[in-house]
Amino acid sequence: MTINAAPNRHWRHNACVPRTFDDLVAEADSVPVEGWDFSWLDGRATEERPSWGYQRLLSRRLAGVSAALDIQTGGGEVLSGATTFPPTMAATESYPPNAALATKRLHPRGVVVVATRDEPPLPFADEAFDLVTSRHPVTVWWSEIARVLRPGGTYFAQHVGPATVLELVEYFMGPQPQRRTEHHPDVETAQARAAGLQVVDLRMERLRVEFFDIGAVVYFLRKVIWTVPDFTVDAYRERLRELHERITTDGPFVTHSTRVLIEARKP
């Protein structure tokens, strides 16, 4: 996704009374999907966490700078977990429902949330920030990140890596070989360097994801819309029904996400 923006949390699986395909799909197709709170999936899906603990590392970095910017903040769920914000703290979000959630969550803590278009430029002056952060950005605007960073400033982020939930994508869309190279760390390193940044830390992990019922799959695809870009229940009902039968017979649908931790510094 330009997840591909899969969620960074543990979902728990609990035993439940079997439900029909139509009931599971109707429920998952009707619940709100704004923001990046994936608690609706508790008991219905699991995802391993990366070992590094992005939110904890983010909180440490925010506590040590004077001005920071969080790009594509979603509903502010991750940023709001920081214990301390710098004197100047801003965040951007382009999806209006998420921008509203982020404003409600972050304004009381002194964070300025700016609703932007999903394209450059960033609405900030040159060299405005010591730290720029992002968790699961859809697109990384390396030149803009370099522009708004002060000399010696840092970009610190967790990106969605290549082939994220590829097994799920290809179940619905067929072979997608290009997804194996999209968002590859080598490509992103080259792009960062081309923008004048020095990559000082780069890590990638492959993580197990399990879906325990078809409702979880529907909810996930509605929420992380770039996974299967044309997804609707009506368009994919027969494939969903086949997957429901497979899960019922064989157990959870297993796929894998990749996460990349990247830290780049402006000389």
Results as ranks from 00 to 15, higher is better:
S51K: 01
L58C: 01
P50F: 05
G75H: 15
A67I: 05
G43P: 02
E48D: 14
L79M: 07
R61I: 02
S94V: 11
L69C: 06
P97Y: 10
Q72S: 15
V78T: 08
S51M: 08
G35V: 08
G81M: 13
D70M: 05
G43C: 08
V78S: 13
Q55A: 09
E77V: 12
Q55M: 03
A28W: 03
D70P: 03
T73V: 15
A63N: 00
S30T: 12
S66F: 10
G43A: 12
S80P: 11
Y54I: 03
A63P: 01
G64I: 02
S51T: 12
T83E: 15
P50N: 03
S30H: 09
S51V: 10
S80Q: 07
Q55W: 04
T92K: 08
E48C: 10
R61W: 01
L62W: 15
A90Y: 14
A67D: 06
E34C: 05
D37P: 09
T73E: 13
A90M: 13
T46F: 12
E77W: 15
T92I: 10
P87D: 14
F38V: 02
T83V: 08
A28R: 06
R60V: 00
R56V: 00
L62V: 02
V33I: 15
A45P: 03
T88P: 03
E34A: 15
D42Q: 14
S94M: 04
L41F: 04
G43R: 10
T88W: 06
G75T: 12
S39K: 11
L79V: 02
V78D: 08
L79I: 03
P86M: 10
A45K: 03
P32S: 12
L69P: 03
R61S: 02
E93L: 07
E47Y: 12
A68N: 01
P96E: 11
R60T: 01
A63T: 02
R56L: 00
V78R: 12
R49C: 02
G75W: 15
S30R: 09
A82W: 15
R44K: 14
R60P: 00
D37Q: 11
F85V: 01
P87E: 15
Q55F: 05
R44L: 05
P32W: 10
E27A: 11
G75P: 13
W36N: 10
S80K: 13
T83L: 11
A28L: 07
A82E: 13
V33M: 11
G53K: 00
P87S: 09
P50H: 04
G43V: 01
S66C: 00
S59C: 06
L41D: 12
S94W: 14
A68H: 06
Y95T: 15
A82S: 11
R61V: 00
S66A: 13
G35W: 13
V78E: 07
T46M: 14
L62H: 01
G64D: 11
W52R: 07
S51A: 15
L79G: 01
L41N: 10
R61M: 05
P97C: 08
T73K: 15
S30Y: 04
E47M: 13
W52C: 04
V31H: 09
L62Q: 02
F38G: 04
S80H: 14
V31Y: 04
A45Q: 14
A45Y: 14
A91P: 04
E77H: 14
P96S: 11
S66Q: 14
A63F: 03
